[in-house]
Write a protein that binds this DNA or RNA. Structure first.
Lengths: 200, 200, 200, 200
DNA sequence: AATGAATGAGAGTTCATTCAT
DNA sequence: AATGAATGAACTCTCATTCAT
């Protein structure tokens, strides 16, 4: 009916983008709604037409970030390759992701600290973790079934791999000059695979 | 000699303790100086006799937390044991630490996000990382020299071990019900050692 | 064109008026921003939309007061009259001004004490003084040129006249019941014009 | 009875001196009791043994400053000289005083603005003004009686002279570079004494 | 749909004053 | 007599949110 397309969604996208940028630069609390409005070019009041509150907007940013991750990881599911190669590809994606979203790292840690006080944030992170783990689990279980991997505990291995991914990114937050996320994720994964692969 | 005993140090300790608690519960920004004063039982103005500003107090909490870590880790240096056993002991300490300071985890992630904007925080975290790595490096290098470990790149292994420690704790923040920090750190470390140990 | 008319200027005027009143009643430091907000009927935060800080507002009050003076003095320049009459008219204006702004006198002295510590205030007062003096100087020099006055030092006379103006107002601050600003400014000016000593 | 002399008075003197200095430098409100305590070398609490409050201390400083003035002026009363010379001597004293107490000028203007709100300050300034005027009046009346002066209104002349004194100091506060207190007080007084208009 | 002027709760901070020692 | 740690009222200023336009 409406001759104009619904701008609602693109406005929301526009606002979340701006909010992400501003939150990253200043942190959730130092970033003001005015800052975000300025970044979008919209008026301050307009933000409230699309998001009920600053907290709402923070949650929207959270969803946006962790949704993006899912998209890229999901594509991997289709690939049919060896388990070791699957883990390496997974590492490639995490690596590419981490470098593409380097500027989102501070915001991610802010979400992590928020998760301890905010159930909504917690739930989102849990869902993310779940899909993350499921993906790894299916690869690892497949590797065990085919005899490519030793008969290890798949959940433990998945957590080990996940820990290496997340832990390496975190160490790079401690000291960027000492840790190269891409390089060290891969070297650590190889070390793990060395112990994991069934002896020939 | 002095008519009144110097309570300066115990007051500082008292305030940092209270601040740590309140910051953990509410986050740095939601915690007000009044909250902290109430927690200590002191007056609001008294805090300012010992800390120039809220930021100062945040830094004091940072130092306090990461100082405590160092003390426990340093003791390990004296132990003369096999490299694999050294890493396991290190894992024990990190594990015990993480569970003793479970409630400090949210604050730690808040520091991580702060580090990207605050050079003082960044520097403290770097120093922490450095000692952490040096400790691991000396164990791993010793293991390589004695032939206990394969001739791997020691820095890479240290980062892998560190990533497992930090990453496992982080994963438990994602979903506490799925990750047991102590158990999974140890299981991951064993997987790594499997690949690390020289074949007999 | 604009849906809402720009109230910016009238708001500024409104705030400066209220601030002047409150500052006069309580002094700069005892007057709180809340007091001023109440006086305007606006909210506390609204003041900060128009003035960045309390200091800014104080300076705005300063400018406002000394600007008003200028306007009235400037009109005198047009008058073409004898020098003695010019000085008398000047006295009339200063007198009318002083009584119209009687309630501003305390604020003026607070500005004077501020000037010793605040360069911005100092500069504004200097500019005021300059125009004040230039006005008097042109009258006096004209009087000397036309032979109406003896060939005195014009700057010295201007300062004498200025001192009588300002000094009389100041003496009335010492004891209002003993000094009538209008009457005594005029009587002192006549003494200056006539000469005090009896001719031999 | 007491073996030690009463230190009470010298303590009071010490505190008022320090307070005067600090008030002059920072203004009444920016100067804290701590600042004053530091300046004296005494403890903060000690000030309250001698002065009930900060306001009390401000009044003590007021009294101290205007008392000092009286002492010097009183000495003049004894001198038996011509009226014109008396006024010149008076000018000398005011001049010397103003330059000796140059740093007290800002504080004086702060007292003036205070006088409009504080009756105690007002009363002290009135007393000062009174003695000031009485002194001048007796000189001027004597001059009229002896025929040295024309039969003018003595009160008006006294106020004219007083206005020149105070006004010149005030003008120098406006712009120190344009007004030399000593020089211009004397030149203005001579103008008053000589008469400005040329005789026909 | 879009705005931004207006708001006021609440933040961090200061400091005159008290009082146990 | 002397102290300074402790206090809390009161300050300036910020900002998420509202709403008349």
């Amino acid at each position: 009916m409406s001759p104009r397309p619904d701008v609602s969604e693109e406005r929301q996208e526009q606002i979340v983008q701006a909010a992400t940028e501003v939150f990253t630069k200043k942190g959730f609390n130092n970033a003001s709604m005015s800052d975000i409005a300025n970044e979008t070019g919209l008026g301050k009041g307009t933000l409230y037409l699309y998001y009920r509150s600053k907290d709402d907007l923070i949650i929207a940013v959270l969803d946006h970030i962790f949704q993006r991750d899912f998209l890229e990881i999901d594509e991997l599911a289709i690939a049919q390759i060896s388990a070791a190669e699957g883990i390496r590809r997974f590492a490639d994606i995490v690596t590419a992701d981490a470098s593409a979203m380097r500027q989102l790292i501070p915001i991610t840690y802010e979400f992590l600290s928020l998760a301890f006080r905010n159930p909504v944030v917690q739930q989102t992170l849990q869902q993310y973790f779940q899909r993350y783990m499921n993906m790894l689990l299916s690869i690892i279980r497949h590797g065990i079934q085919t005899g490519e991997f030793r008969p290890v505990n798949a959940e433990e291995v998945a957590i080990a791999v996940g820990a290496i991914f997340e832990g390496t990114i975190l160490l790079s937050a401690y000291d960027e000059s000492k840790v190269d996320v891409s390089h060290h994720i891969h070297s650590s994964i190889e070390l793990l695979l060395d112990g994991l692969l069934a002896p020939i």
